[in-house]
């Protein structure tokens, strides 16, 4: 197998693992739309990077983290419904991104690659970054396990019983933003959302406890990355989309196997 394919395969696996660790919390907190919105918000971040000449990933990361924090703050303090706040930021960011890209007159910007992702373009350094991110995500989930659990259950009651969820929540939004931005190249803006939901939904169809669901979500991501990568290579299909189709099929199977309470 050519070296770039091995790098790409590692990229697909680690991209899946990093998002799969977060997926159960995104599902339990019912904020999958936030993942989708932030992946679109990243578009404006990338446009800012192009205009300012900054590293695109870094520009997108700073911008998306800021917006994620802004959404969380506005929802908590300004009594705006989270869905409305997110829609406002999503529309404004996409509009800003389109204006900035048109102003930059950058013909080298490969928009389809950021929309749909292309894991075959991933570099070794980016694979290392995804590996490091997977480790950071794991440590974060292990360290804040009980805080994240009760925050996902009911944030108001977590506050009543003085469970220290504030730091866990701030880091959650920051890490979610970093995960989305770093996964854009392999999964693309459109497919990051699917990767943030499907592995967890499949897992919760099969197991009940959260820790098993996290493990099952990771296993699903690895399995579908391997199968999807193999199929896309054999059938000459786009890798990211093939991985998501594999997850969709697994979701269908898990739906029929769904445990009964």
């Amino acid at each position: 197998m050519p070296g770039f394919l091995i790098t790409a395969l590692w990229g697909a696996i680690l991209s899946g693992i990093s998002l799969a660790i977060f997926a159960p919390y995104v599902t339990l907190r019912k904020i999958s739309y936030l993942g989708e919105a932030l992946s679109h918000v990243a578009f404006a971040g990338i446009a800012i990077g192009i205009i300012t000449g900054m590293n695109l990933n870094l520009a997108a990361m700073i911008f998306v983290s800021g917006i994620a924090w802004g959404i969380s703050w506005l929802s908590r303090h300004q009594k705006l419904q989270e869905a409305n706040t997110i829609t406002i930021f999503l529309s404004l960011s996409m509009a800003l991104g389109i204006i900035l890209i048109s102003l930059s007159r950058s013909y080298s910007f490969d928009l389809p690659s950021y929309l749909f992702g292309n894991v075959l373009l991933i570099q070794k350094g980016e694979v290392w970054a995804l590996g490091a991110l997977s480790i950071i995500n794991t440590l974060y989930v292990l360290f804040f396990y009980k805080e994240l659990f009760y925050l996902s259950y009911n944030p108001e009651m977590a506050k009543v019983f003085r469970i220290r969820t504030a730091l866990a929540e701030r880091l959650f939004y920051l890490l979610l933003a970093i995960n989305i931005v770093l996964n854009l190249k392999s999964a693309g803006i459109i497919l990051v959302t699917a990767q943030l939901i499907l592995p967890a939904v499949i897992a919760f169809n099969i197991v009940r406890r959260l820790h098993f669901a996290i493990l099952m979500s990771i296993a699903t991501a690895i399995f579908t990355a391997l199968v999807g990568f193999g199929l896309s290579y054999q059938l000459n299909l786009p890798t990211g989309a093939t991985i998501v189709i594999c997850q969709g099929l697994l979701y269908g199977i898990s739906f029929f196997l769904k445990r009964r309470v």
Binding site: L28, K146, F149, Y150, S152, Y153, M157, A158, F161, R162, I163, R164, F204, R208, R209, L210, A213
Partner: peptide, 15 residues
Amino acid sequence: FPATALDIVLMGIAG
């Protein structure tokens, strides 16, 4: 939500 009755009671002491 994947919580047992015991998990919810333990919330009282988790802080």
